[in-house]
Simulated assay, not measured.
Amino acid sequence: MPDAPTRERNDPGQYDDLAPHWWDPHGPFAMLHWLAAARGALVPPPARGTTPLLVDLGCGAGLLAPHVAGYRHVGVDLTTSALTQAAGHGVRPVRGDVTRVPLRSGCADVVAAGEILEHVTDLDAAVDEACRLLRPGGLLVIDTLAATALARLVAVTLAEKVRGVPTGIHDPDLFVDRDRLRRACARHGVELTLWGIRPSVRDLVARAAGRRLTVRMVRVPTSAVLFQAVGRKVG
């Protein structure tokens, strides 16, 4: 697996360094494909005759796009090289910081924040923006890494050692406190339901043997490493 040149942890420039690998199912972003599929499964199909708006915060190269057909898909990201690829997959690109999104309040039927909250230095500001964008009744979909010693071990120490993720892509000091996340969302009338997920071991074995290309994410009893969360904004 290619690694980015040596940079500070969580440096956004790593995504430019690794830009050719976004859509490679065998590449350093393979797990992001699996997570995008799991995230998309939480988004209900649009009602007949409607084209609701989905705002994809930290959209990267648009990996969510194949899983949210029927939505007007707006992707927000800071990395121009990733946005260019997202546009090629039907995403309307918006260059912006997820803590200061240049879109109007209440515009979104769905806001997806997938694998982005563990990269922001101001969690409350990112949550404020995600909830601001939601219309009443709109759905917030999140997946991220928990602020625990176990997550540091699994998602950084072990993952980087076995080359499951690019070295330095995460700063574990930014991993997300689950109670803080719940409180931040609740201030905006979004009550989160939260659960843990991990890759299917059976699928990982089949992929290693060349019998599968993708790996399903499955629910687990603990949310102490990788977790999903969903909630609707009250009117």
Rank of each mutant, 00 (worst) to 15 (best):
D11Y: 14
D109G: 05
L139G: 00
L150D: 15
D24S: 11
R100G: 13
H89N: 10
D97F: 05
G40L: 07
V230Y: 11
T193D: 13
P166Y: 04
A208C: 07
F227N: 06
A41V: 03
L213H: 13
A61P: 10
P20C: 15
L133R: 02
E129T: 07
G164P: 01
R132I: 14
R7E: 09
V176E: 02
L226P: 01
G196E: 04
D124P: 02
K233A: 06
V101D: 04
W34G: 03
V190E: 02
R9H: 06
V94Q: 07
R135T: 09
V111D: 05
G189K: 10
L123E: 15
L117F: 08
L181M: 05
T51F: 02
V156P: 01
V110M: 00
A206Q: 11
R212I: 11
A209S: 07
R180N: 06
Y71W: 15
V162M: 14
V55A: 06
H26Y: 10
G138F: 00
R212W: 02
A36L: 07
V225F: 03
D122E: 13
R202H: 11
A206E: 14
D16N: 14
L139V: 01
V111Y: 02
V234R: 08
G196N: 10
S223H: 13
T157L: 13
T167A: 11
E115F: 03
N10Q: 14
L213N: 10
A108D: 01
R198P: 07
L174I: 06
E191F: 12
A47T: 13
L153K: 06
A4T: 12
G231M: 02
G189H: 10
R9I: 05
I142K: 03
L42N: 01
S105A: 13
V225L: 05
S105P: 01
F227I: 13
A108H: 00
V205R: 11
V176K: 02
G96A: 09
M217R: 04
K233Y: 06
R182E: 10
R100E: 15
F29K: 10
V111C: 08
R183H: 12
V110R: 00
H89V: 12
P136T: 13
L226M: 11
F29Q: 08
E115S: 12
R202K: 13
